[in-house]
């Protein structure tokens, strides 16, 4: 355990934690668009700026990839931080001024519009990389990545073709802070990143369980029996309860 201060309040953290997660856990309000607790911090959006003072020297830094260190003092808001965050927001807003999620963040930071020319590609993607990280780190599919660099960087499947390693799990679409990863789903199929998957349904109730690729991946990762993935959670619970009742009360409810 190590101790430092955030806005004058003493806080404790584990070694290896970053400032943002410690601050959020203690209820401090720091804006961010590229951070998610289930994946590694990346530092792309630059909104989570704070001022860190260590051994008498202060600097502005992103909090998501700054380690919690003993004895430092962190300031989460002052005029300079607020002004810089508003400028960062103006820059991010250029990528899609009409995106509702971005506008909500802009409102929160007191930015009503961007004074800058809009980016040439306005697809709402702010290149935060959350989709790429969740796909790689949490799912293990590695279906998408950044391609290109500089102002031409974008996110795509290899060669912009349907990805062979995509399992159609939708984690990328769910984690996207601007909600712009498109997918469609009807009764039998799901389409994402240009690839269409058939859907597996619960043998009992017919509810959608996921794609066969997704279930196979989870089976591999968890080592559970294949039959575990035949039914949905609700039906599995029901089955378990029935079996439990049979053993305990001989099938007769008391």
């Amino acid at each position: 355990m190590l101790t430092f201060t955030i806005d004058g309040q003493t806080v404790q953290a584990e070694e290896g934690q970053n400032l943002l997660e410690v601050a959020l856990a203690h209820g401090f309000d720091i804006p961010t668009l590229c951070y998610h607790p289930s994946v590694s911090a990346y530092g792309a959006c630059r909104l989570c700026l704070v001022e860190v003072t260590q051994r008498g020297r202060s600097r502005i830094t992103t909090s998501c990839n700054y380690p919690a260190l003993p004895g430092i003092s962190v300031v989460t808001r002052n005029d300079r931080i607020d002004r810089l965050r508003r400028l960062v927001m103006e820059l991010i807003l250029c990528r899609d001024p009409g995106n509702p999620q971005l506008q909500a963040m802009a409102d929160r930071l007191g930015v009503d519009r961007t004074r800058l020319r809009f980016a040439s590609r306005q697809d709402g993607c702010i290149l935060c990389g959350l989709c790429e990280r969740i796909c790689r780190e949490s799912i293990g599919a590695d279906a998408i990545s950044f391609v290109g660099r500089g102002h031409e960087r974008r996110l795509a499947t290899p060669f912009d073709e349907p990805s062979e390693s995509c399992v159609g799990c939708l984690a990328c679409a769910m984690v996207c802070p601007t909600q712009v990863i498109e997918f469609t789903q009807d009764a039998d199929t799901r389409t994402i990143w240009k690839r269409t998957f058939t859907l597996v349904k619960c043998k009992e109730c017919g509810a959608v369980l996921g794609t066969p690729e997704e279930l196979a991946l989870f089976q591999r990762k968890t080592g559970l029996d294949a039959s575990y993935f035949d039914t949905c959670d609700a039906c599995r619970k029901k089955q378990t309860a029935t079996a439990f009742a049979a053993v305990t009360w001989g099938g007769q409810r008391p």
Binding site: R136, A143, V147, G148, R149, P158, F159, E164, S165
Partner: peptide
């Protein structure tokens, strides 16, 4: 493309990493 796919297979790394390098 075929070469990049083969590199990914032979090095046992995701194709995304190879494409990212090739475009960076």
């Amino acid at each position: 493309q075929a070469a990049l796919r083969q590199v990914a297979r032979r090095l046992d790394i995701p194709l995304t990493r190879v494409v990212r390098m090739a475009t960076f």
